[in-house]
């Protein structure tokens, strides 16, 4: 199902763990979506000096998290901001089509962690991140039915394709 590069990152994920004194933390996804990822950053001279992650998810989600941290490590914040989901998927030499959504997780979590760092630096205080049980489209692209992966429009409460009720999921 997965290629060797994906399996390598799944079997030996790089940069796993928590940075207790992180300068920025980004958290995306929730168990309803099937995947959840937290990224921790240590920043020095506007560069990502250290990066760690924790992920709840399938093989592809773990491989994406691992590859993302490899790509981001050592980059300047400006360069890191340009890392896209596609970059991660390409570095993994491709993901099965139905797993491409997993690649969204990685770059999204990184961007949130960078924003968290910049907010803190700018003195914007906010409550500690709490897990949101709602589906959030932080990647700003198309919206897909969480049940059958068919493209749907935002704010629909019912998927015509698989007849699933989306109200719980999709306010």
């Amino acid at each position: 199902m997965y290629n060797e590069t994906v399996m390598d990152h799944f079997r030996n994920p790089r940069n796993v763990g928590v940075l207790e004194d992180a300068d920025g933390v980004g958290e995306v996804g929730n168990p309803i979506c099937g995947d959840m990822m937290t990224v921790y950053l240590k920043i020095k001279d506007d560069c990502i000096k250290d990066i760690r992650f924790q992920t709840f998810g399938c093989g592809s989600a773990i491989a994406v998290s691992s590859m993302l941290t490899e790509i981001a490590k050592g980059k300047s914040l400006n360069d890191a901001k340009n890392i896209t989901n596609m970059d991660v998927a390409e570095a993994l030499e491709g993901l099965p089509t139905n797993k491409l959504h997993c690649s969204n997780l990685g770059a999204d979590a990184l961007q949130l962690a960078i924003k968290d760092y910049e907010d803190k630096k700018a003195g914007i205080t906010k409550p500690a991140p709490i897990r949101v049980e709602k589906h959030e489209h932080t990647h700003g692209d198309k919206c897909y039915c969480p049940y059958c992966d068919i493209e749907i429009s935002e704010n629909v409460t019912f998927c015509e394709a698989c007849q699933s009720n989306l109200e719980e999921h999709h306010h």
Binding site: I32, C33, G34, G57, C58, G59, S60, A61, N98, K99, H101, C102, Y144, P146, Y147, C148, D149, C162, S164
Partner: peptide, 11 residues
């Protein structure tokens, strides 16, 4: 029977 294995996100 996890979501991902069935090819969709559906639990």
């Amino acid at each position: 029977r996890s979501a991902c294995a069935t090819g969709s996100l559906r639990a």
